[in-house]
Design a protein around this nucleic acid. Structure first.
Lengths: 346, 346
DNA sequence: CTGAAAGCGCTTACAG
DNA sequence: CTGAAAGCGCTTACAG
């Protein structure tokens, strides 16, 4: 390996400006204790030599890496949903001169905590100050993270298998109220036979189902859960659900899909069978993925502000770093029902 | 700010194992110069104290951050295309114990290089070893990066306004041959009236156009470029192009879209006008976005291996870091035409 | 093989 | 206000 070209150090700048290295450091850290003339001379020397202070050295002394890790678990690819969260984290972080490291992890919920093979960034110490957990989070991962004493905030919507007694910092959005409002909207438009399509073994889809059920109950309507066998994906789940919806008597006039992908599969399959959305059946989704707008007609769905989730995670993590003993907090961000073209007035 | 709980340092481990700190370091760096018994004793002490060496300190001495930055420029959001590249970078990097920092940048092509406001990570020194440039890259950004002596590799497909005389490490995929093969495929299926739809002021769409044109020329067919006025987006561009395609005499039997989004807009608008794909008109896209498979019928398109791009960028950057004076290299990765459902045999 | 020492590039009391 | 010195947590010749 060839030598890396040597960079200007603080000592050379000190020499050039005829001051001690401490003074350079003070100027760099905008300490008030430097005279105007000295500061100007130092600044000039810094500029002339193209000096950029070595960040690692400062970090040792500060005992702060000024860097957090965004850890995406059990995702085959960086889904647009999480990509947006990452961007929210980054944009908020960079405004505060904090850096964001991206890492991925694949693990099984059944691996004992101490056997989980953490990514390199978590095997060292001092590299990052804290962690933002995204992707699917099982209890064993939480145990593992706690065992290395790494402060973290979890994006909570994809947390699985955790009881309410679990205490940790978390940020999520409101699954329950999202479908509650979406379903109320359908009811307000005159719909009475409304089904819900999703695999409710996912806790977040279960919460969405509960929101839907609540809206139905408060209007004395019967709730119907549509599932499908061995789906390959959410889209496939939606496709397979279409037939089950159509075969019900009386035929439902509206469907609430557990997420936009299910809604997409549903829409596609319905259309193939000559059933028009929203003329023959109304449809609402959840998540407001980019593709929702592209559907034809564009999908009415529950919007989740992904950037805000990222931002809030970062904000909460920073608070945790500043106050290690603070009690844990949980933030649930509101959702918003977006009316587009897939709901018809009956 | 409360005190961060103090971590075990190398000195405490040395004391616990009754050796000098140098020996701990040697064990950590698996130097051969340590006796089995000593090594065992040290390892035991490390385990017992839960010691994880401070990464920053090592980095100062090694003069390597073991970290690179993935810099995404001028993108409102982390598009799935770039998200995949980032994942390729990360997965290759983590295998080599290298870390990946994510940063975003917004700049104008007209800002003078030294006025470009780089993200915090590039203002410090020693934080990262090198840079992977993604997103739209104009010459002024390149100048700016060069001015801080930061080694970099660029994802070259979105490079704009650069002459061939520009020398830098780059990785891209083959726009020209992608459409060349896609168009030949159409011709092989009996199509003669084939149009190309895209705004060719984007260099990469221009190259795709040239590939299309080449295929037409070698078969003595007339090329036709379809554009549209003031599109809001690529999808909108496609939608607006549909009418222009249909109004041509004789009516084209196939269209090559500059990318999948244009293809999507085209497909959607054609369908609305009662024109069926592929029965009435065949259609091919470019990029193989996730959504291509979801279209109905699924879109035949040119596949680009995004993970491989990321991987290759990382690999090339590492080579550059190890051999700073190596001549610049440029890698063009092949594309593959994926046959799905939007092309019909005439 | 191993320890003591020098040193990486910084920050920060300390003393003036 | 400023310099000289001590120190952060490591690595690596150097000497034995």
């Amino acid at each position: 390996m060839e030598a890396v070209p040597r960079k200007t150090t603080i000592r050379e700048v000190a020499q050039a400006a005829s001051v001690g290295i401490g003074t350079i450091s003070r100027v760099l850290n905008s300490s008030s204790q430097v005279s105007r003339e000295t500061r100007a001379r130092v600044l000039e020397a810094i500029r002339r030599l193209g000096f950029r202070p070595n960040a690692q050295a400062r970090r040792i002394l500060k005992r702060r890496a000024e860097m957090v890790c965004f850890l995406l678990s059990n995702r085959d690819f960086l889904h647009p949903f999480h990509a947006r969260i990452l961007q929210g984290v980054e944009s908020y972080a960079s405004g505060l001169k904090q850096h964001v490291l991206f890492a991925a992890l694949h693990y099984s919920p059944r691996t004992p905590p101490d056997r989980i093979d953490l990514p390199p960034v978590l095997q060292e110490h001092g590299l990052i100050d804290g962690l933002i957990l995204a992707g699917t989070i099982y209890p064993n991962l939480l145990r593992r993270i706690e065992s290395i004493n790494m402060p973290f905030v979890a994006f909570s919507n994809n947390v699985v298998g955790m009881g309410d007694e679990e205490q940790f910092d978390q940020v999520g959005f409101d699954d329950f109220n999202g479908t509650l409002h979406a379903t109320r909207h359908l009811i307000g438009k005159g719909h009475r036979h409304i089904v819900f399509a999703a695999d409710v073994s996912y806790p977040w889809l279960r919460r969405r189902f509960e929101g839907y059920r609540q809206a139905m109950r408060e209007n004395k309507l019967k709730h119907v859960l549509i599932t499908s066998r061995n789906p390959q994906s959410f889209v496939d789940f939606g496709q397979k659900s279409a037939g089950r919806i159509l075969s019900r008597q009386p035929r439902p006039t509206a469907a609430v899909a557990g997420n936009d992908e299910i809604a997409y599969g549903l829409w596609r399959s319905l259309r193939r069978q000559g059933v028009k959305v929203p003329d023959d059946i109304s449809l609402v989704g959840f998540d407001d993925r980019e593709e929702a707008v592209l559907m034809d007609p564009p999908l009415s769905t529950v919007r989740v502000d992904k950037e805000e989730i990222g931002e809030t995670c970062m904000k909460m993590l920073l608070e945790r770093l500043h106050h290690p003993r603070m009690t844990f907090s949980q933030r649930i961000l509101p959702t918003e029902f977006v009316i587009r073209g897939t709901v018809r007035q009956l």
